[in-house]
Design a binder for these strands. Structure first.
Length: 497
RNA sequence: GUCCCGUUCGUCUAGUCUGGCCUAGGACCCUAGAUUUUCAUUCUAGUAACAGGGGUUCAACUCCCCUACGGGAUACCA
């Protein structure tokens, strides 16, 4: 995201490169998460693999291919060049030997942990002998000894590191596949990369790469190492942390992508002193890489959820309805989406300010689609007023006499077109051949007055009988939405239990 | 072990570069109240922080040093 924001704010080219040289981790699944996740968040790229993001075809570019495993020829050329120049050498040490070396270093409390330079000064004859024995070799970078490398990080400022801390790192595996630090440098050069934004854990890699860039006779791109994101315990956020989901899981749960984007942007960066909610465009306009914080931020799902609600409430109902489709539709009989647009629009309108993620809709509206079980609160509300059984019967009779809209899944005529929920207090009453929420209110109030029932007492149990819960939209909107048959059925059933 | 980085309300942050406008601002969370037929929304109010110690200075959250704590790196992972 910060890479994207930096490129966009500078008017640069945002390049997506797939670093897939670890074949165990580079799977179709991880690719799906990268492309799908970026696309969902609306992070588009100018160069890179082909993929469609928000209707825009991303990818292409003059410096491809953008998958490292398709660039092996290129790494081989540069490796030969470095070998010839003496910046690299072949190492015949096995991983097993390296384990031993490190174990010994640890046991001796050595200040230095890493490759001991065993093969650094092998002669041609040594190498020939080992080759003859069939010992495989990898390629290591010959790190200059005892040199202070100074880098200027866009976020961290000037930092000095002595190469004593760094060992001769492996550039190419025995099978010819390069490792991250090497491939990265070759590609950055070939792709004319000017800025690299990456996690803090890569800081030392930046030093190694800087030295390699020098060996190749080039300056390194500008580096910006951003702080990590922490879990609740204060350690690097991991997929395994409770409550943490992959981008695609957030998508599938109906988190608004704008909200997730906005929330993540806030982890390490502030838009302004008094605003937390902003658009991508506003972020791009305000973004400065140097103002990204240096300290890691804890991931707080409370604030994420607040942000989600904030975005959902901002949408118009007509925007919210199609965006909720996949979750709502899954809970409906086949084909009802198209035939019940007006009704579903009203359902969404009633719950828009009551959900935090879109997948909550079907659950919240469940009572409209099937007769509900009473939850604990609802049962209590009814039990508290035994006299309400008589109200159920009486009110059902009142409703029966009214020209109410039908209950889902029956056709509701044009009731939902005439009445747009939620009912606003001071709105003019729509002309409708069906009983509107306002008409239902008049009838209900007339009934309670005639029978000397306190209106406040009346609503609780009746709502419970109708919806199975004590939460939800306005009472008259509930009655209107539920429709005649279901209202009568539920009231009369509970009147006799 | 060694090196590097960091530390403002419980959390995300503004302010720190360019010391005084900071009796430290906003947001989330929490609490209380208002509105209401419930819930939610909305609105109002409240609790709550410059890690500690030295220096420099007329003046330090802001600059310097030390300590403590936290994190990262130290792979034939990225």
């Amino acid at each position: 995201m910060y890479n994207w924001a930096l490129a966009r704010s500078l008017g640069g080219t945002f390049v997506l490169r797939i670093e897939d040289t670890d074949r165990a981790r580079s799977t179709d699944e991880s690719l799906k998460i990268i492309f799908g996740g970026l696309a969902w968040l609306g992070i588009d790229w100018d160069e890179g693999p082909d993929f469609e993001v928000a209707g825009k075809q991303c990818g292409g570019g003059d410096y491809g291919p953008y998958f490292q495993m398709e660039r092996l020829d290129r790494y081989e050329v540069v490796a030969e060049q470095l070998l010839a120049a003496g910046h690299a050498y072949r190492c015949f040490c096995t991983p097993e030997r390296m384990d031993e070396v490190r174990a010994k270093q640890k046991a001796n409390k050595s200040a230095f942990l890493g490759y001991d330079g065993h093969c650094r000064n092998l002669t041609d004859a040594d190498r020939a002998a080992l080759d003859a024995k069939g010992v495989s070799s990898n390629l290591r970078f010959r790190m200059p000894r005892d040199r202070v490398v100074k880098v200027t990080d866009l976020i961290r400022g000037e930092v000095e590191v002595n190469t004593k801390q760094l060992d001769d790192w492996v550039m190419v595996r025995p099978d010819g596949v390069p490792l991250y630090n090497f491939a990265c440098v070759v590609d950055d050069l070939d792709m004319k990369i000017t800025h690299v934004v990456r996690g803090e854990e890569h800081f030392l890699n930046g030093i190694k790469q800087t030295v390699l860039f020098e060996a190749l006779g080039h300056e390194s791109p500008q580096f910006a190492h951003i702080p990590l994101i922490f879990n609740q315990k204060g350690a690097k956020l991991s997929k395994r942390d409770p409550g943490v989901k992959s981008t695609l899981e957030y998508r599938d749960l109906g988190y608004p992508p704008e909200a997730v984007f906005n929330y993540i942007a806030l982890l390490g960066w502030g838009f302004s002193a008094d605003r937390d909610v902003f658009t991508k465009e506003e972020m791009v306009a305000a973004f400065k890489i140097s103002s990204v914080g240096k300290a890691p931020a804890k991931f707080d799902s409370d604030k994420l959820h607040w942000m989600c609600g904030e975005y959902i409430r901002k949408w118009s109902v007509d925007e919210c309805l199609p965006r909720s489709r996949q979750w709502l539709e899954a809970a409906l009989p086949r084909g009802s989406w198209d035939s019940h647009q007006g009704f579903l629009r009203n359902v969404v309108a009633c719950y828009q300010e009551r959900v935090v993620v879109l997948s909550e809709f079907p659950d919240k509206a469940q009572w409209l689609f099937a007769d509900p079980e009473l939850d604990e609160q609802a049962a209590k509300a009814i039990k508290k007023r035994p006299e309400c059984k008589a109200w159920f019967t009486g009110f059902a009779d009142v409703l029966e006499a009214l020209p109410m809209a039908s209950s889902f899944p029956a056709a509701r005529g044009d009731a939902d077109e005439a009445v747009r929920l939620p009912t606003a207090e001071d709105a003019d009453e729509p002309a409708s051949t069906f009983a509107t929420p306002a008409a239902l209110e008049r009838a209900a109030r007339a009934y309670t007055e005639a029978n000397d029932i306190k209106f406040g007492h009346f609503v609780g149990p009746v709502r419970a009988a109708l919806t199975g819960t004590n939460k939800g939209p306005g009472f008259f909107d509930v009655v209107f939405l539920l429709g005649k048959e279901a209202c009568l059925r539920r009231l009369r059933k509970l009147a006799h239990t």
